[in-house]
Amino acid sequence: MSEIVILSGSPSENSRSEKVLRYLGERLEQQQFSVTHISVKDVPAEDLMFGNFKSPDVIRIAEQVGQAKGVIVGTPVYKAAYSGVLKALIDIMPQDILEDTPVLPVMTGGSMSHLLALEYALKPLLATLKGVNLKGLYYMDSQLDKSAEQPIVDEDAFLRTEKQLDYFIRKVGREQATRV
């Protein structure tokens, strides 16, 4: 069972947010965590469209997320909020699936004007699932380069990423210590 689950809410084929999530996964693997990437694209569209919570894919994802020691949830900003597909998947997850779990929320957007979508849309949603939110990361598209090995080309954004990863790792460790 994987220690860290990274959930991508981007429906797009060639996604900036997913590229960042992949990178975060690599960084965690370097720190000896086992990492599983899950995308909304892994779930058959019909299951999401009709809210099929009995879908074997959805049940498997719910198990993986529920047992993770830490979860990263990433989504592009769509209409000043998270993507609809991500919400469609979360809608058919158990309501306390993130209980006692440190969660790092990640969003990418076209402009800084939607930074607070993180605070007003994504974090309350994760808190409802009883996740323990970290501050989170917001990237402007212009701070990212999809084709680069390390996609976070903006220096400030990169430093923020390092800091949040560090907090995330420490928090995962602490939650583990208190659970035992």
């Binding site: 000043a80 402009s111 800084m112 004007s113 939607h114 930074l115 607070l116 979508a117 007003y120």
Partner: peptide, 12 residues
């Protein structure tokens, strides 16, 4: 001071 707070009106 910063456009980062643009959504305060909408949401708050």
């Amino acid at each position: 001071l910063t456009e980062k707070h643009f959504l305060v009106l909408e949401y708050h």
